[in-house]
Design a binder for these strands. Structure first.
Lengths: 192, 192
DNA sequence: TCCCCACAAACGAACGTTCGTTCATGGTAG
DNA sequence: CTACCATGAACGAACGTTCGTTTGTGGGGA
């Protein structure tokens, strides 16, 4: 018995994969069915609509990042350690859930307004965790006092979110080295 | 006489706008026609296919960045000045051609393989301009010798390409300040 | 100056296909 | 036996595109 039935989670996972690759509007329900060895119509035994799938994948992305940031902030130590934990956590989320993250970053804007608004809020909250830790570092005197936490967090997240676009696990950088490189340039940018 | 007829360029420009907003697959020819006060079918008096529009917009994006980088490299002065010119040029392209750039960055992957390959080559060439200037800076002794030009250029372009995602001209940063902030953090990251 | 023609641009119907989704039906695992 | 799940036909809408036709405009000959 090699074949197992498909669960709802299988479908959400496959949707994440295909939305990441072809985009939400570039993926049809028949495409998605084929990926799972089903007809497109069969998916409706498990879900109510295509958009529900996007909502689910994008929400998972938001949740992963927020959870990661909570663990990082609870970290013992000063702002420098916390920021490093935020960065390492972000990299882990990106590399461990690449499809979800790509869909979260690139396809969330295809959601209707109410869902999109919720996602934007989650993203703002996540970014504010970076801002707060940077501000904390300034207050502690470990980061330069003329750093703008808002701009700095935007730049840091720019680098972190772009990983999805270029990083290949088969390349010459493993994930520890990747975090190291990012932490390096960020500390030299913030450091006093 | 308030109404003018639409030219092919009007259509390409509107396509850039709509592809940037809704994505290539999220934009129908009827949507695009409506934007111009036309029926979808009327567009075919000017163009041969929807994909041609995407090719045209994306190619324009590639060309804008390559041209900008050529002007920057021809700049008098050392690597530090050239890198600054590359950065300022990139920011100018992003802010002056936001729709084209967003389509170039986010929708190029929807092209068929042959067109996509060409775009990837152009992107690689553009990135190599950054790599070379950074290497030059290392050779000149103005950048730290342990900097990896490949990684550094990826990080720099991550920040530059993300501008499209957050920058609003109505915000508190004007473009000169934006370039200044980016140049600042990058020099502190590369500087000896 | 006027007319008329040529031409590009836009129309609107229609084509074949694909879209997301529904539904009655059949099979299979527990 | 009974849920559950997958099927495959079918739906109406929307897709990209084609086609024959109409519209408006600018230029050249009478």
């Amino acid at each position: 018995m090699v074949t197992t039935r498909n669960t709802r989670e299988d479908i959400v996972a496959a949707a994440g994969r295909m939305f990441a690759d072809k985009g939400y509007h570039g993926t049809s329900m028949r495409d998605l069915g084929r990926e799972l060895g089903l007809l497109g119509s069969s998916l409706y035994s498990h879900i109510d609509s295509k958009e529900d799938l996007l909502v689910e994948v994008v929400d998972e992305g938001a949740r992963l990042f927020l959870n990661s940031s909570e663990r990082a902030i609870a970290f013992e130590g000063g702002a420098e350690k916390k920021l490093r934990a935020l960065i390492a956590g972000h990299v882990d989320v990106v590399l461990d859930h690449l499809d979800v993250v790509r869909t979260y970053l690139n396809e969330a804007r295809m959601l209707d307004e109410s869902h999109r608004t919720r996602v934007v809020s989650a993203r703002d909250e996540y970014e504010s965790r970076f801002r707060e830790v940077i501000q904390q570092g300034i207050d502690e005197g470990v980061f330069k006092s003329d750093v703008d936490p808002k701009i700095a967090s935007i730049f840091i997240l720019s680098v972190l979110n772009a990983i999805e676009r270029w990083y290949r696990p088969s390349g010459s950088l493993d994930r520890v080295q990747l975090v190291e490189r990012i932490d390096e340039i960020i500390r030299s940018g913030l450091g006093d």
